[in-house]
């Protein structure tokens, strides 16, 4: 499963959303994901992927989250 799919599924599961409605351009705030929710999401992804994720810029869209996770992976491997 690629990172985007993993994020979309995690959000759909947590917030009762339809995963197919989430796109890379979706703004986090538009689906009710605030900074605490985003921190929780990254924690869940850390658990799944096994790398430490430290965002270096503000997370506004799903794309930003994907980029943050990918950066963390590249740093590790």
């Amino acid at each position: 499963m690629d990172i985007f799919e993993m994020i979309a599924n995690a959000l759909a599961d947590r917030y009762g959303l339809d995963a197919s409605e989430i796109t890379p351009e979706t703004e986090l705030i538009s689906i009710g994901v605030d900074s605490l929710d985003a921190a929780e999401l990254l924690m869940a992804l850390e658990e799944k992927i096994g790398v430490e994720i430290e965002p270096t810029k503000k997370l506004a869209t799903i794309k930003d989250v994907v980029a943050t996770v990918e950066a963390a992976q590249n740093e590790t491997f």
Binding site: L36, A39, E40, M43, E46, E47, E52
Partner: peptide
């Protein structure tokens, strides 16, 4: 500590 929820305190 990295697994303590951001919602723990609130």
């Amino acid at each position: 500590p990295r697994r303590v929820s951001p919602f723990f305190v609130p």
